[in-house]
Amino acid sequence: MAALLEITSLRKSFGGVTATDDVNLKVEKGELHAIIGPNGAGKTTLISQLSGALRPDSGSIVFQGENITNRPAYSRARLGITRSFQITSLIMSMTVLDNVALAIQARDKHSFRFLKPARDIEYLREEGRELLAQFGLDGRADEPTVALSHGEHRQIEIAVALASKAELMLLDEPMAGLGPTESTTMIEFLKDLKGKRTILLIEHDMDAVFALADRISVLVYGHIIATGTPDEIRSNDDVRHAYLGEE
């Protein structure tokens, strides 16, 4: 069976710096695939090429059998790819519920609907509140997003990504900047989500990665040096040498 996402010979450089160097990667439907690597390895650049925020210089990205390499970002979202951002990217001026409701609304074919007030549309609000309830945020649904804490912003990022019901979720360091308790909650949540969606996870927290991932790919200087199960990665000499810092 073909993989859900298949990346072939992907390359991207900025000026003289090669951020993505001949990346080949397959993500199977339903797996939680983690990408680890040192800072500056090109993890976010890779995600951005998958989501469509950046265009690769060469190579191809095939999603559900369709070549999406040159599709714009909004069109990839329609096909079923969503992402969260390493640096929280929400619509701060709107309420928490509005953010989630917009993500739900995006599933409709288009939003050229001018008459009915969006905040009176039941299914957008109901489903939005239910999603927020999963994070215990339903009580704060009507507050301006900017008023919430960093930890809550990270949770809303995930809620927004979930709302799209996308088959593939690209999660860029969902645990970034979270305290220990918040991290634990997030890990529990992702564990729960595992199997229901296909997830490509970038994360620095190694405990989280090894606890969650079905497979792990190690990205160093834009190049994938190893892919395998957590156990295989742990015992891989190249990885130990290049990344885990052991001799």
Binding site: S51, A53, P72, A73, Y74, A77, T82, R83, F85, S89, L90, I91, M92, S93, M94, D98, A101, L102, A103, Q105, A106, D108, S111, F112, R113, F114, L115, K116, P117, A118, I121, V160, S164
Partner: peptide, 20 residues
């Protein structure tokens, strides 16, 4: 309206709206 929410969302954070 739903259109207006998208318009305001794009004002607040265009990249996020595109990603949606």
């Amino acid at each position: 309206s739903r259109f207006g929410m998208v318009l305001q969302g794009a004002k607040g954070n265009n990249e996020r709206m595109v990603t949606m």
